[in-house]
Every structure is written in structure tokens, then in C-alpha cells.
């Protein structure tokens, strides 16, 4: 009897812990968890100033005029960032077509500010068709980078070929400077829906 009671207690406690640890069975991976966090907690993005491809300062976080769609890149990236760049170009077209270009801006932020100077950012931006107005490419101050990555939940690890691997995604920040949604980088439709949701 005691054994049964103890076992039941363990099962209940165990289920409670697992329930807690997976956000109610919704998130088994860290990637899923950060997306849930964005939807549920709407964390505030640190107020930092980025340096754009044209060398002008661009404030991120805090109240802004427009909602921001953020992706993280590094310009020397051979594969996935090129694909992500193409997706971003398509998304920029979609944003214009949806008439959101007055209320939304797109920013590709480099997490490799040491190597990605404005020249590199500019080359990357021109390569993919970033116009610097609706869509710009920027880098943070190296000191701001860790807090920025932590808030967005972006993990950057070195790959075997001198580059980086990171959890690529599109991050929607509302005009109040809060992270509201994270969607797949190759799912512009979901990004557009999320943008519609935050600009109203």
C-alpha cells in the first residue's frame, strides 16, 4: 500500500515536472520553447543602436514608429544565409504588395560584427536587393550582442568549416519594442500574418 502510494506520488510529481519542462507538452525543443515564449511573454528587446549598411545608426528596441522584422545573419555565410537572404527579398516584396511598407521595416542583423563592417554589410545588402529603407542590413555593437542574442533566443555555434550554424528564423518585433512572434525563415506567409497581427 505504502509502495503504491509512493509510486503514485512519484508518477504525479514526474508528470508535473515534465508538464512544466515542456510548457504543457507543447515544446520539447529549445527552438519550440523560444517561439512559445515570444507569443506568451512578449519579452522586451534591449534598447540598442545598430550600425546599418549605409553607416547610419538605427535604434532597435524601445518604442519605434514601425514594427520590425529581424533576422540574424553573417555575411560570410555560404549556404543557409544566402537562402535566407533570398527569402528576405521575397518577403520585402510581399510586404510592399500588402501595403505594409509604411508600418514595417526589415532588418538583417549580423552576429559577427567583428568581420561584418559596413562595407561587408553593404555588399551583402546589395547582393540580395536590400534597399536600405524598407530592408536594411546592420550590425550591433559587440558589447550589445550577447544580450541581443539571449533575448531573441538565438544560439550561434561554430561549424566545422570556419563558419557558424544558428537557429535561423524570422523574428517579429512590434512598435513597442517587444518580441511578438518567431516563424520559420522560409515561411513568408506566416511572417506576413504575424506582421499584420502587430501593426494593427
Amino acid at each position: 500500500m505504502q509502495a503504491l502510494a509512493a509510486s503514485v506520488a512519484v508518477v504525479l510529481a514526474g508528470l508535473a515536472v515534465l508538464w512544466q519542462a515542456t510548457d504543457g507538452g507543447q515544446a520539447l525543443t529549445a527552438e519550440r520553447a523560444r517561439r512559445l515564449t515570444a507569443l506568451r511573454d512578449m519579452p522586451a528587446v534591449p534598447e540598442v543602436v545598430l550600425e546599418t549598411m549605409t553607416g547610419t545608426p538605427l535604434p532597435l528596441g524601445g518604442p519605434t514608429k514601425r514594427a520590425t522584422l529581424v533576422e540574424f545573419i553573417y555575411t560570410t555565410c555560404p549556404t543557409i544565409c544566402q537562402a535566407a537572404g533570398a527569402e528576405m527579398a521575397r518577403l520585402a516584396d510581399d510586404v510592399r504588395a500588402a501595403g505594409l511598407d509604411e508600418s514595417v521595416r526589415l532588418v538583417s542583423i549580423s552576429f559577427d560584427p567583428g568581420r561584418d563592417d559596413p562595407d561587408a554589410l553593404n555588399a551583402y545588402g546589395e547582393g540580395h536587393g536590400a534597399d536600405g529603407a524598407l530592408w536594411t542590413v546592420a550590425r550591433p555593437d559587440p558589447d550589445d550582442l550577447p544580450a541581443l542574442l539571449a533575448t531573441f533566443g538565438v544560439v550561434v555555434i561554430p561549424d566545422r568549416w570556419g563558419g557558424f550554424t544558428h537557429n535561423t528564423a524570422l523574428h517579429v518585433v512590434d512598435a513597442g519594442g517587444r518580441l511578438r512572434a518567431i516563424v520559420d525563415y522560409d515561411d513568408p506567409a506566416a511572417a506576413l500574418t504575424a506582421l499584420h497581427g502587430v501593426v494593427q
Binding site: 509502495a3 509512493a6 515536472v17 515534465l18 519550440r32
Partner: peptide
């Protein structure tokens, strides 16, 4: 003691703890 008869309570504890550490999220 009687509460650990058959080892069930302890084995279940270990199973749940292992299940927690099987979550990719926990490893991250």
C-alpha cells in the same frame, strides 16, 4: 522500507528523471 517494495517508487523516479534529460530542450 515498505514504501520501496518492489523498487517501483525508485525506478519510476529514475524513469521520470531520465525522461526529463531526454528532452532536447533540457540538453540545450
Amino acid at each position: 522500507g515498505a514504501w520501496n517494495r518492489g523498487g517501483w517508487a525508485m525506478i519510476l523516479t529514475a524513469i521520470f528523471a531520465m525522461a526529463f534529460w531526454m528532452l532536447p530542450r533540457s540538453i540545450d
